[in-house]
Design a protein around this nucleic acid. Structure first.
Lengths: 231, 231
DNA sequence: ACAATAGTGTCTGTCAGACAATATTTC
DNA sequence: GAAATATTGTCTGACAGACACTATTGT
């Protein structure tokens, strides 16, 4: 720590944690991954998954490590959300938390973490008060996801490797809470060059013409953007 | 610090700093506020202004405090940019830095900070390699500013309290590095309800019809956005 | 055939970009 | 008046929203 070179008051010690807002679309609702705390403070309360950043790893790496630990899946979309550093946000000590937003397709079942008593997918509309300032962080994450759907290909991160236009449209409808015209949505997303890549396959479901399957294209920015509007 | 309650390995100590990307438009260029480092490491190199977060203040408050110290002005636009936490980004010890983006009108002259040998407004196009990972942070800040001009009223933060449509247009042209049609720009910004509020006053400059003066309106989101396009 | 979903074509209002025209100042 | 800048008006092409219509499956 090189004590002696700098006065200790120059760099008061902080703990640095990462907190994850992991969102998915399941059961016709936008859901967040929550864990029930197994230790004080806020024992028994729901909280965002997360943990301490280790000495030798980057903050981004810590977030990726926690995400794999909690979901059991690698390769999910992960981006930094914001950093929360109010002095009293953790009653134990001075903790600065770097929050991340992750998007996942409908995963089988949450994995109970080491320090979490239980984990569950909870519809964001039913989330009540979380531990620490996690309600605020969750709200910021949801708003970020809603906003980024408009001008990025983020919506495909909620789908699996192959998906239909209708499945992608359901994602938008559920995340935004609006209805979208199937015809216009189809024309829009298939019209943007490089956004969706047809795989050639088709689905065969109950009743109705089979739909073409697509996978995420290389284009990450939608210009012009999709617009959030009711229908 | 409550040692004994948790194993020390649970929360390895970090130093937390704030770094500021302070941008302004002056002399027909987008400029950033830089300081020349007065101590090791990177002695004599240009760097972003910033400093350690104190124990009792929030991270946001630390950024606001540093901004006032460096510019001598209060009330500037200030928003969190991102957090940088690579293990070796500071050779002294493990430092996590929360970067902020601030926008200022053309200020008189930079104030030399306590630990900075000099401060200056440097056109971002002429900035070479900065200390630490500050080149990356500056690039991220500039890109954030450019992107947010499209869909927010952020451009007005570069202007003083009262400004003309032409002055605002110059801001967009310089930040984006493109030419904009004065007629279409005028129609666009005055057409968005609540974006600009006419003060009633007019300018009297050399040659040309006086322009109406405006101040920033309440509307912070531009919908539909202005689009970055050449002219 | 009918229901259901997928996908295409057409119409229309809105808006951005191009640019002509007018207004108000200084020299 | 000429030059310069501000502001308004007009035209046109592109595109979003509404919605009729065609296509392809299961029952």
């Amino acid at each position: 720590m090189l004590r002696g070179v700098y006065a200790p008051s120059d760099f008061p010690p902080f703990a640095v944690t990462v907190d994850l807002v992991v969102l998915t679309v399941r059961a016709d609702a936008l859901c967040a991954l929550l864990v029930r705390r197994g230790e004080a403070p806020f024992l028994g309360r729901w909280a965002l998954p997360g943990g301490f950043v280790q000495v030798a790893e980057s903050v981004d790496a810590a977030a990726g490590r926690e995400l794999v630990e909690e979901t059991g899946v690698a390769g999910l979309h992960l981006e930094q959300l914001a950093t929360y550093g109010e002095p009293r946000r953790d009653p134990r000590m001075r903790v600065v938390s770097v929050a991340y937003l992750a998007l996942a397709p409908d995963l089988p079942v949450p994995v109970a973490g080491t320090d979490a008593a239980a984990a569950a997918w909870v519809p964001v509309s039913e989330v009540s008060s979380l531990a620490f300032d996690h309600s605020r962080i969750l709200a910021d994450g949801v708003e970020r996801a809603r906003a980024k759907l408009e001008y990025s290909s983020l919506g495909t991160a909620f789908c699996g490797g192959e998906f239909t236009v209708a499945e992608l449209r359901r994602v938008y409808e559920i995340v935004w809470g609006v209805g979208l015209d199937p015809r216009n949505f189809h024309r829009k997303v298939t019209g943007v060059e490089g956004f969706l890549v047809p795989t050639g396959g088709t689905t065969s479901r109950d009743g109705g013409r089979p739909a073409a399957l697509y996978r995420r294209g290389e284009v990450g920015v939608l210009s012009p953007p999709l617009v959030r509007s009711s229908a």
